[in-house]
Amino acid sequence: MTQIPSRDVLKAQAKRLRADMKEKGTEMTHAASLETVAHQWGMRDWNTLAAKADVSEIQWYPGQRVSGRYLGHKFDGIIKAARLASSGFWSLTVRFDEAVDVVESQLFTSLRQQINTTVNAQGVSPQKTSDGQPHMVLNTP
């Protein structure tokens, strides 16, 4: 099953559709573009699609306890700051309970107690290490 993106992403799709139609000489209301996007996602109307988008979206918030893997290292911590970007990604500041060594070298260490990261609604960062693993993977609540 394809995951429905956030409402912000769906609204951006509707805005692009409306602009594309106008460029081609066809005027479309904002409401009509929202309904068309809903139909493209297989829903009967915008309200149904918007409700499903809200359900599929995990909310990250300050004070939330989290665990997961950062650069391959297990951690427990707390979200200090969270902001939803219009692209559907979250900008998070995570403070680890115990510092994480972010260096693989045996010759030195570099400990991090707090990091800023970007993740999707499922808690996975788009940035990847050289071996293809996401920088951050949060366990979903």
Rank of each mutant, 00 (worst) to 15 (best):
V55Y: 05
K52D: 11
H73K: 02
A53N: 06
P134Y: 12
H30R: 11
V137Q: 15
V55G: 07
S110L: 00
G42W: 06
E23L: 08
M21Y: 13
E98I: 09
E27W: 13
I4Q: 08
F108R: 10
Y61K: 15
H30I: 04
R65Y: 02
G42S: 03
D76L: 10
R16M: 12
K15W: 04
T36K: 15
E27M: 13
S6Y: 08
D131K: 05
R69N: 14
A19H: 01
Q13Y: 14
V37W: 08
V37P: 04
M136Q: 11
K74I: 10
V37N: 04
I79F: 00
M21I: 01
S67N: 12
Q122Y: 08
R69I: 08
A32E: 14
M43C: 13
I4W: 12
A82C: 12
V37M: 10
L107N: 09
T48L: 08
N139T: 14
R44M: 12
Y61H: 12
H73F: 02
G132I: 00
L138H: 05
R18Q: 15
H30T: 05
A38S: 06
K22M: 03
M28P: 00
L84E: 15
A12E: 11
Q114R: 00
T36S: 14
H30C: 06
M136V: 14
I78G: 06
M43P: 10
P126T: 01
T48F: 03
W41F: 12
H73L: 02
V102R: 01
T36Q: 14
T48Y: 04
V124E: 14
S125W: 05
G68Q: 08
S6G: 12
W46R: 01
G88N: 04
K15G: 01
S87P: 11
Q106R: 10
L49G: 08
K15Q: 07
W60L: 02
K11F: 09
G25F: 09
V102T: 04
K24P: 02
Q64E: 03
T36H: 09
R83A: 11
R83F: 10
Y70G: 02
H39S: 13
R69V: 15
R112A: 14
T117I: 11
S33H: 01
V55W: 06
H135N: 08
T2V: 11
